[in-house]
Computed example of a mutant assay.
Amino acid sequence: MSKAAAETPFWKQKPLEALSQAEWESLCDGCGRCCLVKLEDEDTGQIHYTDIACKLFSAETCRCADYGQRRRKVHDCVKLTPAAVRSLKWLPRSCAYRLIAEGRDLAWWHPLVSGSASTVHEAGVSVRGRVALSETEVQLADYPDYIVSWPGQAPRPAKTRGSGAEKPRRRAEPAPE
C-alpha cells in the first residue's frame, strides 16, 4: 500500500459494502437521532422527528442501552446496512452512513475526524439534553404533540481560529427527505 493510501481514511478508500464490521460501527457518531421516534405523514410521505426516544435509548450515553439485543427487544428497530442507508428517507443529513453513501466526507465534529467523542455533542448534533420522554412514557395518540424541528437543522460550523467567537451560529438545514 502506498503512503498516500495509508494516510487516507478508510471511509474515503472504500464503499460502504467493503467496510469491516469495526469500520462500519465506528462510522456511528453517537448522535442518537436514529433512536428518536419518527412519524411519517401518510398523505405526503414527509418524515417528522419527535423528541421521544426508543425505550432502549440511554440519555446519558446517547447510545442504545442494549445494542446487541436491540432488534429482539424493539420489533421495529432498523438494522443499518449499505442498502438500507441508501433507501431510508429518515436518516439525518448529518448521518455518517448517509454522507459516505452519497460520496461526501465526514463533518469536522465526527469522532473519526475530531479524535473526540464529545465534538458530536459540542456541535449540537446529538440528542443529548433534548429528549423529552421515552416511548414507554407516551401514549401513541400523543406522539404528534412531540414533533420537533431541530433534528433537521444543520450542526454548528467549526470554529475558525482567531475569530474570537465563543459559539458559532447555526445554519438552517432542510428537513430530511
Rank of each mutant, 00 (worst) to 15 (best):
P168F: 07
G115C: 07
C64D: 11
A101L: 03
R72W: 07
A83C: 03
R98Q: 11
A107S: 09
A83N: 12
V131G: 04
T81P: 13
P82Y: 04
V131R: 00
E122K: 15
K55V: 05
G103K: 02
C54F: 10
L56V: 02
V148I: 09
A53V: 06
K79C: 10
G124K: 05
S94V: 14
W90V: 07
P144W: 06
R169M: 11
L106E: 01
C95W: 05
L99R: 14
C64F: 08
V131S: 04
Y143P: 01
V78M: 10
S116I: 03
A123W: 03
P168A: 13
S94E: 08
H110C: 05
S118I: 01
G68H: 09
V131Y: 08
A141G: 06
A65M: 03
A123M: 04
R86H: 03
R70A: 14
S118K: 13
G129D: 05
R71Y: 11
D142G: 00
V120R: 10
K159P: 09
V78L: 13
A165F: 12
G124L: 07
H75N: 09
A117W: 13
G103I: 07
R170F: 14
A141M: 08
L88E: 09
R93I: 07
D142C: 01
G129Q: 03
Y146H: 15
A65R: 11
A165P: 00
Y146N: 01
G152Y: 02
R171V: 14
V78H: 00
S58C: 12
S94W: 02
L80T: 06
D145H: 13
G103A: 04
A117C: 04
S87E: 10
Q153Y: 08
S149R: 10
P82W: 06
R170L: 13
A132C: 14
A96R: 08
A96D: 06
S87P: 00
G68E: 14
G164R: 06
L80D: 11
I52T: 02
W109F: 15
A84Q: 09
T136P: 02
A165K: 15
L133K: 15
P111S: 06
P155I: 12
A59R: 07
W108R: 04
R70G: 03
V131M: 07
D76S: 11
V138S: 01
A59W: 05
A123D: 05
L99A: 12
V74N: 04
W108K: 02
V120Q: 05
R171A: 15
A154H: 02
L106A: 07
A154L: 13
T81Q: 08
R71T: 15
V85H: 06
E60L: 06
R170Y: 14
A83T: 11
K79D: 14
